[in-house]
Amino acid sequence: MNGFLAILRRDLSLALRQGADSVMVVAFFIVTTTLFPFGVGPEVNILARIASGVIWVSALLAAMLSLERVFQADYEDGSLELLTLSPVSLELLILGKVLAHWLTTGLPLIIAAPLMAVMLNMDQNGFAILMIAMLLGTPALSLIGAIGAALILGARRGGVLVSLLVLPLYIPVLIFGAGAVEAALLGISATAQLQIMAAILLLTLAAAPFATAHAVRQAME
């Protein structure tokens, strides 16, 4: 457990000192969301109708933007090698890194999401469910993304590759995340969608660290 906290603390202090990543992710999220009113026109009814989908798609793209950096810096300076060789299990260390990634990118997205919902004229009934759905969905995005980030280590043009690998795997989160908000807007219960999102989160929490650790070990060969 100490190892988990140690890597979490280090990654957070690195993110704090470099800062750019979190800001960039949120800025990207805001800019992408803002593009839609320009594209589809400023009619409030249409915007309200597509708001949940737009917010989710933008969040997905923004989360993906930061993935390449999850392991790349550690891979380049040799830290990843030493993490692999540490007596603490690599799966636990990866979980620590993923948690740090979520705290620095997922959490700011959740905070920015209601602002974008207001801009897109989403009905207030959907706000609470949007936040809950993102709280369940974004950690799953970080966990799935870590697998992709580990698989591209050592590849040229990894950024493009990681999107191709990871985006299809994000589809379930998108479907149920947007679905939950739709249900809330229609005034029906969103419990089913939220439960499925919780299930996706638990599944990725159990499986992703192992898959990621395997990919990292492969990259060390």
């Binding site: 190892g3 140690a6 890597i7 280090r10 202090s13 300076d77 090698e81 030493l82 260390l93």
Partner: peptide, 18 residues
């Protein structure tokens, strides 16, 4: 394996903690 933004002590601390 040295992080440019961390001090020498902070760099070493992680490996000791692990």
């Amino acid at each position: 394996a040295i992080k440019p933004v961390l001090t020498v002590r902070d760099n070493l601390r992680l490996w000791g903690q692990l």
